[in-house]
Simulated assay, not measured.
Amino acid sequence: MNFPAQMPTAPGADRIGQSTAVEQSRAVAEVQAAIYVARQFPREIDRARTGMQSACGSMALASKAFYRFPRAGGAVEGSTIHLAKTLAQTWGNIQYGVSEMRRDDDYRQSEMQAWAWDVEANTRHVLTFIVPHAKFAGGQVKALEDLRDIYENNANNGARRLREAIFAVIPDWFIEEAEDLCRKTLDKGDGKPLAERVEGAIGIFRSLGVSETRLEQKLGRTKAQWTGADLAQLLITHKSIQRREISVEEEFPQLRVTSAEIKQNASRKQDNGPQ
């Protein structure tokens, strides 16, 4: 049997189609244009700082600038993706994004990537990570089956990594000043008297099944002693409950009656006797 001198080459993975080549060219041109524009219009630090101060002075941003969730018997607090995106916009010349690179239904996981790029300084921070299609609930790991649950789980994990990526390309002093301003805004509130804000907070948590006594126990003092900082903490907690980062039971455990209190109540009943 005679064989040809050279076997025909089968189409390989390195073959690039026309649409792929066009997309690659477009992506390269987009990057070059972004760098050119950033260098033509560099950020103005004073202008960026003024924009940040204005944004952090509003309750609209301050009320959702921080998160709180339980961990190891305590709670972890920090800045949210909402604050991170606002700072990226005010700092300027920053691009960012998050995407699902691959979904593996056999292993029940998604490979994702979050990134932030300071186009002007040409500083880029990339995070590639695996998100299991599962969640921890009721003391055990539960597999996610519904496509919407998987999407929301990926989105929540992606938002956290994206926050880290954005903060990695923004100066620390800019972030710290923004956080301080947001806390001061929460402390001052929306212009209402402190007593009115206290009653409003009590009413909000009462609708969640949290009594005034449990709030006082959480803050360690009576409502007459609450400050603007205490109300700011309650507002952060309420927002975290709404976003399902923490549950009411985790943040406000039921009041526990000690054995000493039981004995004291029993002795009081004996002393009073039947009337």
Rank of each mutant, 00 (worst) to 15 (best):
R68L: 15
T213I: 12
W91P: 00
D105Q: 10
H125I: 00
W91F: 15
S54N: 15
Y67S: 01
M101F: 03
E199H: 08
Q32A: 13
M1V: 11
Q254M: 09
T90Q: 14
E145C: 01
M101Q: 14
S267N: 14
V169K: 00
N2T: 07
D104V: 05
A201S: 15
D190R: 05
L181K: 13
V28T: 12
V257P: 03
A62Q: 03
A48Y: 08
E251V: 07
R103G: 03
S267W: 12
D187S: 11
L83R: 07
F167R: 02
M7G: 10
A224T: 15
P193H: 05
A224V: 14
V76R: 15
T80N: 05
D190G: 13
T86G: 00
A121S: 06
A38C: 06
G228R: 10
R221S: 13
L83N: 05
I35L: 15
I35V: 12
N2D: 07
I16E: 12
P132H: 05
F136G: 00
P193S: 12
A5K: 12
M52F: 11
N122E: 04
R244S: 15
Q40L: 10
K218F: 15
A229E: 15
Q140H: 14
W226H: 08
A34T: 05
Q109M: 12
G200T: 12
